[in-house]
Design a protein around this nucleic acid. Structure first.
Lengths: 361, 361
DNA sequence: CTGTTAGCGCTTTCAA
DNA sequence: TTGAAAGCGCTAACAG
C-alpha cells in the first residue's frame, strides 16, 4: 500500500535473493528448492504481488499468449450472426486448448476506399497477439492488409480464397449445389436468390450479372454462382433469376430483402438463400403474409445455424464451430513454428428439412 | 529480410535521426516537421516496419489497450447461450468506442474446491489487459479471486451481487415476478420451475429447499426465489413446487431437464423457466410429445433472446446487449481513473407472448 | 541450486 | 524541432 507496487526485483531484494530465483519460483518450480519457493510465494502473497508482470514478460520472451481474431465489419454485427458466433466458439475452444487468450479486434466497417486504413493499421498494429485469424473478410480489405504487413502468422478463414495464406474453409460453390438441386428436383422454374453483402461497397437491391461477376466477397459470390451453375444445368436462364442482396446481416434486413424480392417478383415459387439468416427472414415474411411454406413457397438456406435447423429449414450445414477450432489450431501450430502453408477444406452436408416441396403441391 | 527485424532504434540509426524523432513520427505527428515525418514513414514502409512494438510500448506506458472479459465456465458454452453472446456484442461495441481490443479469458470450468485455482491465477495473472469485466461468475469463484488480487479495475456483471465491486445488472428477483404472476393470473396451481446452475458444484435434478437457500449462483437463485415469492403470495405452497436444475446450459440439456420435470410431475400445467434456453427446451419437448403449448402447458422464460421472441415465448426481456455496453463503458471509465464504485441496475420488461393460457383453456 | 549481467523495444523527461 | 539518457519489469545465458 505504502510504496509503489511490488516488482519481482523489489521482492527479491527484500528477501535477499536474486531476481532469477524469484522468477524461477514462478516459471520453473523445479529449478529451486521447495523451501525457497514457499518462502518467496508467501512473501509475494503478503505483499499483494500476483506474479511477473505480463507485459514485461512478453517483451522479454516475445510471446503474448493470445490469438488475434479479426471479424468482418463491426463486431457487434458479427455477434448477431449465429454462424460467426459458432465460429468464435470453436476458436475459443482451440485457444483454451493452447491456454492462450483470445483477442478480438473490433474492426470498424471498412468500405472500400474509405479513409480508415490508418485506423485499421493502428488497431492491428497495436494488438498484443502472436498471430491472427482473419474471418470472412473481403479481398483487399484494409484490415487484412494491415495484418499481412504486421508479419505475424495468419490464417484466413472462408475468404478471401485467393490470398495465398494458410486457409480454412469450405468449397462454397460446390456446397450450395444440393440446395439448388433440391429446388430443381421439385420442378421449380421461377426461383429467386437472396444473398448478403456481395461487395465491400454498400449495395442493396437487385444485382446485375456484371455486378455479380465483380463481387469481391468471395463466399457470397461463390454461393450465388454455385446455385446458378445448377439452375443453368437444369435449363433455366440465369438472366431470369433475380438476385437480391443486402449489405447488413440482421433479421430486420433479411425481412426487408424478402419483401423486396417477393414484391418485385410475385410469381416466384422458390427462394434460395445464401445464408440461414436470410432464409429465416423469408419465412418470417411468408408467415406474416399468409404465404404457406413450403406449399406456396419453397425456401432453402445455408449455414445450419441452430434456430434454422430447429425450424426445419432445408439447408446446407457447414461445421461452423469446427471451422473456428480448425483455424485456431492451425494458427497455434503456425505460431509454434510448423510453417507449411496448409489449406483445409471442411465437409458440408445438405439437411433436407421440410421447406422444399414440389411446385403447386 | 536479411538482418533481424527492424526496430524503432535501428530505423532511427539508419536514418541518422534519434529514436525520439521516430517515436514522435508515430505518436505525436505535430511534434516534428512534416518533411521529417514523411521521410521516416517512407523508410519504415520500405523496411516493413509497421510501427512501434505494442509490447514494448505497453511496458513503457503501462497501458494495454484491451479490456478483459471473464465469462463463466467454458467459453464455448458461453457462446451457446444467446444471452451471453448479446452481452459480448454490447461489450464489443463499448470497446470499439474506446478503441481498445477485447481479450477473452478462456476460463475453464471452476468446480468449487477443484485444484485449478493455480491455472485460474495463471491465466488471469498473465492477461495483458487494463481491467476486467467479470460476467456472471459464482460467488467465491477462483477466477474472480484472481482478478481481484490482480488489482486492476473490475466491473462485475449480474453476479455475484455482493462483492462490493462496481456492478452492472438487473434486479433478478423482482424482474421475474411478472412471469410468475402471469401464470398465477391464468389460474395455474400445478407449476414447475426449471433453472440452470444454482451451485458451482454440478447438481442435476430436483432441488431441495435447503439446497436452494444455499445456492451460490446469485442470479439463478434470485429468479427462483422471486418466482416462489409470487407463488407463495398467491397462496401456493412453495414446498409443492418442484424445481429441477441442470448444470450445463445447452439445448440438449434443456430438453432433458424438461423431460425429467414433466415425467416426474405429469400433472403440471405450467413451467416457469429461469432462462429462455430452458423454455425453448420445454417447447421442443412438448412439440415432440404432442403436448400443445399453451393449451395444455403454459411456459415462461427469461432473457428475451431472439429465437425465443421469434417463437412468441412469454418471457422477461432484459437488455443483454445494453448490459454489455454499460459494463464496458463503466470499465473504460474506471480505467480512465474516474474511480467511484458505481452500481447500475437496468430495466426489464415482460413480453406477454403467447405461451401462457388459462388452465384447461 | 542460486546469482550476475544484459538487454527485449520503446517513451519520456530534460537539454540543446 | 530534435537528441541523449534513463529506465518500464522481466528472463535467459552463463557462472559459481
Amino acid at each position: 500500500m505504502s510504496k509503489r507496487s511490488t516488482t519481482l526485483a523489489s521482492l527479491a531484494a527484500e528477501l535477499g535473493v536474486s531476481p532469477t530465483t524469484v522468477s524461477n519460483a514462478y516459471n520453473r518450480p523445479d529449478q529451486l528448492a521447495p523451501a525457497t519457493r514457499e518462502r518467496i510465494l508467501a512473501a509475494a502473497a503478503e505483499r499483494g504481488y500476483t506474479g511477473p508482470d505480463p507485459t514485461a514478460r512478453s517483451l522479454r520472451t516475445r510471446r503474448q499468449g493470445s490469438l488475434g481474431v479479426l471479424l468482418t465489419e463491426h463486431l457487434s454485427y458479427a455477434f448477431e450472426d449465429m454462424a460467426s458466433v459458432d465460429f468464435l466458439a470453436g476458436m475459443a475452444e482451440a485457444s483454451a486448448g493452447a491456454s492462450t487468450t483470445l483477442t478480438l479486434i473490433p474492426a470498424g466497417p471498412d468500405t472500400a476506399g474509405a479513409p480508415n486504413d490508418a485506423q485499421a493499421a493502428q488497431l492491428v498494429g497495436s494488438a498484443a497477439v502472436d498471430g491472427f485469424v482473419v474471418y470472412s473478410v473481403a479481398a483487399g480489405d484494409a484490415y487484412l492488409d494491415a495484418v499481412q504487413r504486421r508479419g505475424l502468422p495468419v490464417v484466413v478463414c472462408d475468404q478471401p480464397t485467393d490470398s495465398g495464406l494458410p486457409f480454412v474453409g469450405i468449397d462454397d460453390r460446390a456446397a450450395i449445389a444440393p440446395a439448388a438441386q433440391a429446388l430443381v428436383d421439385a420442378s421449380h422454374t421461377r426461383i429467386g436468390i437472396l444473398a448478403i453483402r456481395l461487395h465491400r461497397e454498400r449495395l442493396d437491391g437487385e444485382v446485375t450479372a456484371a455486378q455479380l461477376a465483380a463481387a469481391d466477397m468471395h463466399v457470397q459470390r461463390s454461393r450465388v454462382l454455385g446455385a446458378l451453375d445448377v439452375f443453368a444445368q437444369a435449363g433455366l436462364d440465369p438472366a431470369r433469376i433475380p438476385v437480391v442482396t443486402r449489405h447488413i446481416n440482421d433479421p430486420r434486413t433479411a425481412y426487408a430483402a424478402a419483401e423486396e424480392l417477393l414484391t418485385k417478383h410475385p410469381d416466384l415459387t422458390a427462394v434460395l438463400c445464401t445464408t440461414d439468416s436470410m432464409a429465416l427472414g423469408v419465412m418470417a415474411y411468408a408467415r406474416d403474409h399468409g404465404i404457406m411454406v413450403p406449399e406456396q413457397l419453397s425456401v432453402t438456406g445455408f449455414d445450419g445455424i441452430a434456430p434454422a435447423l430447429a425450424l426445419g429449414l432445408s439447408t446446407v450445414v457447414q461445421p461452423n464451430k469446427e471451422k473456428g477450432a480448425a483455424a485456431g489450431r492451425m494458427l497455434a501450430s503456425l505460431i509454434e513454428g510448423r510453417g507449411e502453408v496448409p489449406r483445409v477444406l471442411l465437409e458440408t452436408t445438405f439437411h433436407p428439412g421440410r421447406t422444399v416441396a414440389p411446385v403447386g403441391a
